[in-house]
């Protein structure tokens, strides 16, 4: 089993009712002997160029573990899935994961900082109360 990253671009009309499409993708992965570690819905995004006549697509990320023969099966299955405009299946990179974790942490920190600033007055009064 190796770690892979799968990105799936769903048809924008499915945005409100995405679960059946996601189920379909998960079934494709599991039927090929794969295991889903993590999923992330990145929502509808504008595309840099049109895909199948669509200007938008719903981006869905999956971290998966696959046996060696699975990537080929999954790719050919996703290619014939109507809900999927496009997909990308690549080997996971430990540095990439680290980089993302660091970026997420930095973002969370800046979020809390700005929150702290906006709440500074209330915090101050609370602290005084203590």
């Amino acid at each position: 089993m190796r770690d892979y990253e799968l990105t799936v671009l769903f048809h924008p009309d499915l945005e409100m009712n995405l679960d059946p499409a996601i189920d379909k993708v998960q079934k494709i992965i599991e039927s090929a002997g794969g295991k889903i570690v993590k999923t992330e819905n990145d929502g509808k995004k504008h595309l840099a160029y049109r895909l199948d006549g669509q200007d938008y697509a719903v981006f869905y990320y999956l971290d998966v573990q696959l046996p060696t023969e699975a990537p080929l099966k999954i790719s050919s299955n996703l290619n014939i899935t109507d809900e999927v405009l496009r997909h990308l299946l690549v080997r996971a990179d430990i540095n990439r994961a680290k980089n993302r974790a660091a970026a997420a942490e930095a973002e969370a920190k800046s979020d809390t900082d700005s929150e702290a600033e906006s709440d500074s007055k209330t915090n101050l009064t609370e602290e005084k109360g203590d």
Binding site: T7, L9, K45, L47, A48, Y49, L51, A57, F59, R86, L88, V90
Partner: peptide, 11 residues
Amino acid sequence: KRARHLALLPF
């Protein structure tokens, strides 16, 4: 090149 494939960047 991967970003282009996902239409995140233009060709």
